[in-house]
Write a protein that binds this DNA or RNA. Sequence first.
DNA 1: CGATTCTTTGAAAACAGTCAATCTGTGTGG
DNA 2: CCACACAGATTGACTGTTTTCAAAGAATCG
Lengths: 196, 196
Amino acid sequence: MFETLAIYLVEKGALTQSELELIEQVSVLKKVRKNQLLLEEGKFSNFIGFVAKGSFRLFRTAENGQEHIMKFAIENWWISDFTSFMSGEPSNCYIDALENSELILFSRENWDHLLATIPNFKRMIDRLTAKNFEAHQNRIFSNISEPAEIRYDNFVKKYPTLYNRIPLYMIASFLGIKRETLSRIRKQAASKRDAS
Amino acid sequence: MFETLAIYLVEKGALTQSELELIEQVSVLKKVRKNQLLLEEGKFSNFIGFVAKGSFRLFRTAENGQEHIMKFAIENWWISDFTSFMSGEPSNCYIDALENSELILFSRENWDHLLATIPNFKRMIDRLTAKNFEAHQNRIFSNISEPAEIRYDNFVKKYPTLYNRIPLYMIASFLGIKRETLSRIRKQAASKRDAS
DNA sequence: CGATTCTTTGAAAACAGTCAATCTGTGTGG
DNA sequence: CCACACAGATTGACTGTTTTCAAAGAATCG
């Protein structure tokens, strides 16, 4: 199970065997069943997880109780409430498993230690952080500038693997529209395709 | 003019006098007139700026030519296309001055050098980066979960100083709605207030 | 098969966008 | 100091999009 992460670290960060061992020593393996909560509102987010198998969602709830999905994660993605992880404040998010899944967890102390002692690991994470920042910018731009239909098209193009595994109503939630609206958008798009 | 930054650095980062001098030595002062471009699409974003006086906006343009404002900055805010700054790729943003303004600029080399040599500076910037990350999360959540009226209310509450200085149509652009819509939202809100 | 869970559909209401016109305030040049 | 131009804000009438609520269809799983 650690193997998935090892392959990832070699490929993305060019880590050596001894560095991998360092990382493995401080990692914690965890299996979670579908629908199981990894984090809930009010709790402290003191881990960073690497998805070895399965899928997760990170969502917040509005005052009216509606859930709004901020982020998905599947194999080879990192999952955490980074905001709470960094600030040390209680989280305002929930994370749960969409399938039976396997995670590799790091506590804050171990994470910081790895960053401090393995330069290649730090470099890799810095690159990821920059990418992540860029993705947030793009998502905000998309939200304020594009109609729902385009946002959906781009989602499908950008995350084809997610699209195949995640219920449509969750994609709607991620895009900020209602499931019924997404259903109608898909119908329209299909009839346009047929016409051409 | 550097004084504004000095006060900021002492207050936010507890920097010493000698550290301030180090920073001042590598800073570049720049005055820009209203409407002047600081960065445009396709160019490289190789500076980080501290706003000593005035105000700026960072925006992108969609295919149809419409401008969408990603970010504002006034006194004591940092302004840059961080995405391009970090990646080294050409920018897809414009930055221009909303008023006659004064900036304190740092090149990438000097910026990195300051981070590497002044731990308190690094700590301060890390805190800001975390705050910024959190703000992005909140904006995304707001965009996907809140109706325009609430987004506007929250904007006014969160940035009362901005609200007083920036034309409404730019606030509309930031919120992802049309100026006419914002105008109507404000009218409704006013009549609600009068009724109660 | 039956029970969930997810997706689609329909009709009405609420919301947001478009286009064109008007209104308001500010500042500049004659 | 006034008149005019200009940028910004508002309004009206209309169109288009999204939500809401209720119900009916798939699909999946034990």
